[in-house]
Amino acid sequence: MLDALKDVVRKSSIHVCLINTGGCNGCDIEVVALLSPRYDLEQYGIYVHNNPREADVILVTGPVTEQWKKNLQRIYAKAPEPKVVVAIGNCPLTGDVFNQEGCSVYAPVSDFIPVDAEIPGCPPRPSEILAAILAVGPDAIAAKGRKKP
């Protein structure tokens, strides 16, 4: 009974935190474009407010740079359970063009924190990001919440 009630609550109010771990900003502005009236993220009950302490979904854009190696894990630990990590763009998956000889990036991001969904693209379209958040977000959060720690 309590689990069913929690499921409903968790599915209908998703708070998103966007972490740029060294990307070029391209994926970030596509997330900002999601807020526009054309895509309207908030009609699905998703609210972007960039506060890791309240986040259900953490969006990671960018390869992991020197400064983020420790800080990314710290921020991940601050987000309350249950939480889902979505990696946006090629950078968190492979490092994209930056991951070459002489670079200072430490991709992929899954070396540092567990990743639940991946969206390739440089950058992916807003509709793809929205589809990925909706595909993985509500159910995965609810399923993680039912598991006893």
Binding site: N20, V97, V105
Partner: peptide, 25 residues
């Protein structure tokens, strides 16, 4: 200093045909 990726260092030693894609990012 949070998003330093070393883009100029990566460009050095590459051909200019490759460099233009790095400069875009």
């Amino acid at each position: 200093g949070y998003v330093h990726r070393g883009i100029e260092r990566v460009m050095e030693g590459k051909t200019w045909q490759k460099g233009i894609f790095l400069s875009e990012r």
